[in-house]
Design a protein around this nucleic acid. Structure first.
Lengths: 208, 208
DNA sequence: CAAATTATTGACCATCTGGTCAGGATCACG
DNA sequence: CGTGATCCTGACCAGATGGTCAATAATTTG
């Protein structure tokens, strides 16, 4: 809701950090409703009232995490540039998103949990900021297509496909690992696969 | 755990059905922990003790739903046949999965919720039955590749990609709709996009 | 229709959970 | 070192929740 004082003492910074880290782990593993403040407090090495000293409520912790998450999540798309080779740009975006799934799987699952359950808290952002960003980048992709620099595809669904394919490896990690077995490295293989997939999808077609 | 008596009275059948339908809606919308027996009871038009007369516990309802779900979820893959054109087979599989997302989004979200949160209940199936099924079908795809009938791709990740791309439209439905706006029909567009994507991905390559 | 079986419920309970609060410990700083 | 601000805690509370049970209503069946 309102911003906290900008000057944070050393100890304040440390404890807020610890709480958010703990809460991210718990929320992403068990969902918001499935997590208790006590679990967060234990994981952060604090008492429950102490956690509530730093955050007004369980909801406030959640909201704080979500706000942090959004930039991390949207930034890669912002970096999709008009300059440079279109195929390289899109391939690089897919790669960045996959790395995000690999390096921040908890964040991915927190986001998935939220969207899966209606995303009431995120709805305004999804229909506002995100939609505008997507529309902008879709227009860019459409221009590339019109110029014959990449093959014809629906730009929106191209972006959805990148989200789906990359987040799948974080969100459904247990399934992926269960099916592949321990001797595989899902993210390495996925990197190769995605590169191949988008090269073939986007390669300008000779005729139509 | 144990099977219920095979002879179910009319009324038993009706009420069990109502409970499961209500529970599916609630669980898929709010997760297991976020749903109370009272909510399920209300949605089913029964009292809480009456719900517990038909199912031993909230957990039992959940488990019952999960068991039902599994066949629905795995059947399409079982129908991937060695006979017929490989590309048609895979395209048809992707189409079936997309239809499943469209027609059973609640089931998709229930499954997603479960896997997302560690899938403890499903783990044995994921690593057992599912893994065997996937290995079998991957071998089939590998044969198609070896015979030059489709392009070279990692069979496992090809299957993952179909899961990810199709389930995304059910699991992230609010995001998809928020970004696309109301004038779009995500599933129709996705059908076209997926068809295109897998045709280009699988088309046998001229050279290597 | 009467007995036996099945279905339903209100009242109740133990536990858990988010959150409060008064008071005490610790720390920063003049 | 003293004092005000910050930090921390045990005890507590009200409401929610999963689940039980004895009693009653409805239904099936002989």
């Amino acid at each position: 809701m309102q911003d906290k004082p900008l000057r944070q003492s050393r100890i304040q910074k440390k404890n807020r950090e610890a709480i958010l880290t703990a809460a991210l782990r718990e929320f992403s593993a068990r969902g918001f409703a499935g997590t208790t403040i006590d679990q967060i407090a234990d994981a952060a090495g604090l008492s429950k009232p102490n956690v509530l000293y730093y955050f007004q409520s369980k909801d406030a912790i959640h909201e704080s995490l979500l706000r942090e998450l959004l930039d991390l999540w949207l930034d890669p798309l912002r970096e999709l540039r008009a300059e440079g080779d279109p195929q390289d740009q899109i391939l690089a975006y897919a790669k960045r998103k996959l790395e995000l799934s690999r390096d921040y799987p908890q964040e991915s699952r927190l986001f998935a949990n939220e969207v899966l359950q209606g995303a009431e808290r995120l709805a305004p952002i999804l229909g506002g900021e995100l939609r505008e960003l997507v529309d902008e980048k879709s227009a860019l992709i459409a221009r590339w297509i019109a110029d014959g620099r990449i093959a014809q595809v629906d730009p929106h669904h191209l972006l959805f496909s990148i989200w789906a394919l990359t987040q799948h490896y974080a969100d459904f990690e247990v399934q992926v690992r269960a099916v592949l077995g321990p001797e595989h490295d899902p993210y390495v293989e996925a990197g190769v696969f995605l590169d191949l997939l988008y090269r073939r999808l986007l390669r300008p077609q000779p005729r139509e």
